[in-house]
């Protein structure tokens, strides 16, 4: 059980034992997050830069809380405050930030491969908080943590992911992670939003929602973005038709197992991909996902900074 990587760029890079290490550590941090006093000195003196070049509320806050609960100093760069708007290249921005000697840069960017680009170029740790349609590894880890808490394990379980698979980094990271841990993964949505070769990542594609959710232990709904239609992608006629064919509501839920778990990475479009009754219903673990997000991000920062190895060294010293 170990995690010896400098960076967390994607689930695709990880071995099963590395995923389990991240989840086990997150489990410990999850307990910490339930205490009245939530702060530990683990990362005191360490600096974390949040480089968010794409809008984000949940993920950015989650990373920030995670870092602060471990006593790291955090700094935020992004949006209109960044020099990206002044024509500086991403690599220059990143090299300048690194020159200020952070220990970790958490990066979100609208283009795939950017976390890998920074991880390769910079000596400090890089955590991917979402790169284009590529990966969102901490989201998949927090989803897995949530499922492990509810289901005990992944072997023999079926997880159905519904929605815009083609433009979803959450879907990709989850397909890879869940299949790696032994689950069966179905993806469902209009054929226009199922990317070619998704089977190569381990998923089975389903056309119809009712077939996809039948016998599933988990149904994960993805956000449908109106912008996709507005930008002329010709993916589906309108959100009303989408909702009728692929929306999860009390009616479609009758096809599902009574104990099915409903997930959503957020932000939720109520009434489009999921009805309020389902989102707030007994099946929903959506807010558990958010709570676990903090623990998973604490775990990710802890491991990429080598704090586990540092602690082990201290422990060995004390034992002597």
């Amino acid at each position: 059980m170990s995690f010896a990587r400098k960076d967390l760029v994607g689930i695709a890079d990880l071995e099963e034992h590395e995923i389990l290490t991240l989840l086990d550590t997150a489990e410990r941090f999850r307990e910490l997050n339930e205490r009245p006093i939530k702060k530990v000195p683990t990362l005191r003196g360490r600096s974390v830069i949040h480089l968010f070049l794409e809008p984000s509320t949940r993920t950015r806050t989650s990373f920030d809380i995670a870092a602060k609960r471990m006593s790291a100093d955090t700094f935020s760069v992004g949006g209109v405050t960044s020099s990206a708007v002044k024509g500086e290249t991403l690599l220059d921005t990143a090299r300048n930030l690194h020159a200020m000697r952070p220990d970790v840069i958490v990066v979100r960017h609208k283009m795939a491969g950017t976390a890998a680009l920074l991880a390769k170029a910079l000596p400090c740790s890089v955590i991917n908080a979402g790169d284009g349609f590529h990966e969102h590894p901490t989201q998949a880890l927090l989803d897995a943590l949530t499922l492990r808490q509810r289901l005990g394990g992944f072997e023999g379980r079926t997880v159905t992911i519904v929605g815009d698979i083609a433009h979803s980094r959450v879907a990709r990271s989850n397909v890879i992670l869940l299949t790696r841990l032994g689950a069966r993964v179905r993806v469902c949505g209009p054929r226009t939003l199922i990317p070619p070769g998704i089977e190569a990542l381990g998923a089975v594609a389903c056309d119809r929602l009712r077939d996809a959710i039948e016998d599933a232990d988990v149904v994960m709904m993805l956000r449908i973005q109106q912008e996709r239609i507005d930008q002329g992608g010709h993916y589906f006629p309108n959100t009303r038709e989408y909702s009728r064919l692929y929306g999860l509501n009390l009616d479609t839920m009758r096809r599902a197992r009574p104990d099915v778990l409903v997930m959503h990475p957020g932000p939720v479009n109520r009434g489009v991909e999921i009805s309020p009754e389902v989102a707030d219903g007994p099946w929903s673990v959506i807010l558990d996902q958010v709570t676990n997000g903090v623990a998973v991000r604490m775990s990710a920062m802890y491991h990429v900074m080598g704090a586990d190895r540092a602690e082990a060294a201290v422990q060995r010293g004390a034992d002597r």
Binding site: A12, E135, R172, P196, A200, L201
Partner: peptide
């Protein structure tokens, strides 16, 4: 687009 559309573009999340 950034590459050929296929299983590799799907894995990399690049527009194909």
């Amino acid at each position: 687009w950034a590459m050929h559309e296929g299983e590799v573009s799907t894995a990399l999340g690049l527009p194909g």
